[in-house]
Design a protein around this nucleic acid. Structure first.
Length: 266
DNA sequence: ATACCTGTTTCCCG
DNA sequence: CCGGGAAACAGGTA
């Protein structure tokens, strides 16, 4: 379930292995998550090193190991991280297991849309430093939204919100949550959003991103009570605000959920 | 059986 | 060249 905050939380699970030596590395070489790297090289570069730090940016994760070894992870649609007991045995969809004395750090991904990257060298990998600015960054500003809306006039706003260049870390449920709070129909074309609505939209982007990080990002689990999240997939789900029936439809390539009563095309 | 799915990339069209 | 949309990737679940 990996969007911004879930990714941040997943990262903390591996933090249990910080400062600890890697005793063994297991890979399921058939997994598609290794498509961009050599899995033998991955094992060799992590073995006997220490996990020294971790970070997340949007949906991306970066783990640093001693000796100038860097591991990038993306959880795709169904990827997850876990810290298991040291006696843990590999399960069917475990792509990577990093074994330490007291725990096994696991990356599993049934659908294998996730991706592992590797980098060797003293400096932070360029694919990390070149990631777009994040919604939680101090420098994240409304100009990014304004420019994007002008550039993509014909796109439904829902599709724009899922564009990682502008809303790094945004995923399907966050986008629905943002639009619901901003009272904007997901199918509204970007060029039709009024100036005041753009302001509201920006405010809600920050609210949802920050709120998700403070709840899900810190403790895992679900977003706070009252969020659309809790009802958006329920058949017969009602809008937490208006109490009316929610609607679901594919917009911008993804199933979207909205309240027809609160969110209109103006 | 059928139709889903918290994501990204690639391909095709205008 | 750009913007926009659909398909593809793959396995589990309802």
């Amino acid at each position: 379930m990996p969007e911004l905050a879930e990714v941040a939380f997943a990262c903390t699970l591996w933090n249990r292995g910080l400062k600890k030596v890697i005793l063994a590395v297991e890979v399921r070489q058939s997994s598609r998550v290794f498509r961009e790297i050599n899995h033998v090289q991955l094992v060799e570069s992590l073995l006997k090193t220490k996990l020294t730090s971790s970070a997340t940016k949007g949906k991306q994760m970066l783990f640093r190991f001693s000796g100038g070894n860097w591991l990038g992870l993306h959880l795709g649609m169904t990827g997850s991280l876990a810290a298991e007991k040291s006696s843990y045995l590999a399960q069917k969809h475990d792509a990577l297991i990093i074994r330490q004395a007291k725990q096994a750090l696991v990356f599993r991904d049934p659908r294998q849309f996730g991706k592992i990257r590797l980098h060797q060298g003293k400096d932070i990998p360029s694919w990390w430093s070149e990631l777009p600015i994040g919604m939680l960054d101090e420098k994240y500003e409304i100009k990014i939204l304004k420019d994007a809306v002008i550039r993509h006039k014909k796109r439904p706003i829902k599709a724009l919100l899922l564009d990682q260049r502008y809303f790094h870390g945004m995923g399907n449920w966050m986008a629905d949550e943002v639009l619901w709070r901003a009272k904007i129909h997901p199918g509204l074309r970007c060029g039709k959003i009024s100036a005041p609505k753009v302001k509201v939209l920006f405010k809600q982007i920050l609210f949802v991103a920050r709120g998700a990080m403070q709840s899900v990002g810190r403790h895992g689990g679900d977003p706070p009570k009252g969020w659309l999240f809790h009802v958006r997939w329920k058949d017969g789900g009602k809008c937490p605000q208006s109490g009316k029936d929610l609607r679901r439809e594919k917009i911008g390539g993804r199933t979207s959920c909205w309240c027809p009563n609160m969110q209109n095309l103006n």
